[in-house]
């Protein structure tokens, strides 16, 4: 087991290096030189000497490989650069916004898992019933309706019919006022979780249908166990394995992909920060935030893989060879 974990950890290193290289190269592919992209129109006011001094200060006069190594050295020491637009270090900005995104991702994950597994299980157990039809329609809708559409619709319905303005801004932190904070998080979380609950529903349904046809379920039934026990204890447990994988993969997406939902609901999270950085051409921030999200994504996938190996005894750890 330890050996498996070590192997996985080592395997992730080249991916992380690749990710950092890709982000590094991508930002340098942006047309125009780095000083202009950093300072914007104000760069035009620099004298030749000032420009040279800045270039040497940021190490832009050195070869790309040296720049990369220096940058990586800084990154490993927790220095992701400085955002001129915000007047703050990039890492501080990211760490300020990250809790909002994490909370949003977590609440949507829980919402989606509860809705998705319940609906999926009912759909499978009551195969071809009215509930099954409803569940399948729900899944179809969830896969076809993008979150920006669900968000726009939800805001419309809430504001027109209920007089609630979920995108009014003035975000309140969890520690400040948990109730108000929950009111602000729940609608974006429902929006973000909607399509995910559809995939959870589909996965649960097909896994349950497969499991319910297995011999051991028939055995459990024939020895007189109550239907509910068979479903929750015997079937659901095994059917949950693909759902766990799905949830892990999705958590990574939720953390990075909350961009649009945060934008619609005016939530000050990491996605919105990145998006604003893109429209303001704040390259230091784009570089830092993208790297942060991607590394997060890789690490979450790794953790899910490891949990998966613990949960599912059928996976070999490579130590039996």
């Amino acid at each position: 087991m330890l050996r498996y974990i070590a192997q996985r950890l080592i395997a992730v290193i080249p991916t992380l290096i690749g990710v950092s290289l890709l982000v590094f190269i991508a930002i340098r592919l942006v047309p125009g030189d780095a000083i202009v992209t950093m300072l914007g129109t104000e760069a035009g006011m620099l004298t030749a000497n000032q420009r040279a001094a800045l270039e040497s200060y940021f190490g832009l006069d050195k070869p790309a490989t040296v720049q990369y190594v220096t940058w990586m050295g800084d990154v490993l020491q927790g220095d992701l650069g400085f955002s001129i637009r915000h007047g703050k270090p990039v890492l501080d900005l990211i760490l300020e916004r990250f809790p909002v995104t994490m909370e949003l991702a977590f609440v949507s994950l829980v919402t989606a898992l509860v809705v998705g597994t319940t609906l999926g299980t009912l759909s499978a157990v009551l195969h071809n019933s009215f509930i099954d039809l409803f569940g399948r329609l729900f899944a179809l809708l969830g896969l076809a309706a993008p979150n920006f559409l669900i968000g726009t619709l939800l805001i419309y319905v809430l504001s027109v019919y209920f007089g609630i303005l979920p995108n009014a801004g003035n975000y309140v932190e969890l520690t400040e006022d948990p109730v108000k904070n929950f009111e602000q998080i729940i609608f974006p979380a429902m929006t973000l979780g909607f399509s995910f609950s559809a995939s959870v529903m589909r996965t649960t349904r097909s896994a349950m249908l497969e499991v319910l046809g297995e011999d051991y379920i028939r055995t459990a039934r024939s020895k007189g166990l109550r239907s509910r026990t068979v479903i929750t204890r015997h079937a659901l447990r095994n059917a949950m394995i693909p759902v766990v994988t799905l949830a892990g993969v999705e958590l990574g997406y939720l953390l990075g992909g909350a961009v649009i939902v945060e934008q619609i609901f005016a939530l000050p999270g990491l996605g919105r920060l990145t998006l604003n950085a893109i429209s303001q051409r704040d390259y230091a921030l784009i570089q830092g935030a993208t790297l942060f999200i991607a590394i997060n994504f890789v690490v979450i996938n790794l953790v899910v893989d490891l949990i998966y190996a613990v949960v599912d005894p059928r996976i070999s750890y490579g130590s039996h060879k």
Partner: peptide, 19 residues
């Protein structure tokens, strides 16, 4: 290819649009 999979899809698309 794994490097590309390390990015959430929308983020990768945003990165390309940035460039």
């Amino acid at each position: 290819m794994d490097i590309f999979f390390a990015f959430p899809a929308i983020l990768l698309a945003l990165l390309v649009v940035t460039i």
